[in-house]
């Protein structure tokens, strides 16, 4: 069993190294400024994790982000462990949606998942507090106290949540999920806690589209903040004033 290094000085040093950018494969650079957080330190509200999607570069036929999420978190796909559920009943943490402007016919495509709202309706309505937002802005379901009432699914404006309709096997150790509980995009919290980047963002970059960005919205020097400052970014259903953590360009 390997123990994580917990010496803070060492971690900080490594954090700076990581800030130089992660080389994941030749020619692919991750635009993410990582701040190493020791394993025994709680997530902090100084950070707010967010994502940015550029719908202009998001490719219509491509679903690399969806596939990567499926593989990472163990839902759906060809080897789905939901064998009895109908397609309407199977979970979807992230989906690709193609839109057409009713007036001018302009078509665009984008990935749609939990928008990690600052004031999430799902957290407001959850009777037990299972639906929760971490200090760093990631919205999660604590399946240990989820009673499966699905009120959060009624309240979510993005239909981002799914309910597991049958008994599951062979879950991923990093992404527990099971019958009778609600689940959704976790922003790959297990990776983020280890300075990683969500699987969808990595896959998008790997596929060469560079349509997804991940980073700290509170840090003005992060790539995502700089990009948002320069080009702006819209929220889906901005009228609800939820201050989403996922923003879209070109929408």
């Amino acid at each position: 069993m390997k123990q994580l290094p917990t010496d803070p000085s060492r971690r900080n040093f490594l954090g700076k190294t990581a800030a130089a950018g992660l080389l994941i494969a030749p020619g692919v650079l991750l635009h993410q400024v990582a701040q190493a957080r020791p394993a025994d330190e709680a997530a902090s509200s100084k950070v707010r994790w967010g994502m940015l999607v550029d719908t202009n570069t998001c490719s219509k036929g491509c679903d690399a982000c969806v596939t990567a999420c499926q593989t990472e978190n163990g839902w759906g796909g060809e080897h789905s462990n939901e064998v009895k559920s109908s397609p309407e009943q199977q979970s979807q943490w992230i989906r690709k949606v193609t839109l057409r402007d009713k007036q001018n016919g302009h078509e665009q495509s984008l990935p749609l998942m939990c928008q990690h709202c600052e004031t999430p309706p799902c957290v407001d309505v959850c009777p037990t507090g299972a639906s929760m937002k971490r200090a760093d802005g990631i919205v999660l379901v604590d399946k240990h106290i989820c009673i499966g009432c699905r009120y959060c699914m009624m309240a979510c404006p993005y239909k981002a949540r799914s309910f597991v309709h049958e008994e599951l096997h062979d879950q991923k150790p990093y992404a527990p999920r099971g019958k009778g509980t609600v689940e959704s995009c976790t922003m790959c919290v297990h990776r983020v806690d280890k300075d990683g980047t969500p699987a969808c963002v990595e896959a998008c970059n790997k596929a060469g589209h560079q349509a997804m960005w991940f980073g700290d919205l509170n840090n003005p020097n992060s790539d995502i903040s700089k990009r948002l400052k320069e080009y702006g970014g819209n929220q889906i259903r901005a009228d609800l004033g939820l201050n989403t953590g996922v923003r879209y360009q070109g929408l």
Partner: peptide
């Protein structure tokens, strides 16, 4: 979700 736009494809019955 998308005023003024119609959803022409989605895997999640949008």
């Amino acid at each position: 979700m998308f005023p003024g736009k119609e959803i022409i494809a989605s895997s999640f019955f949008d």
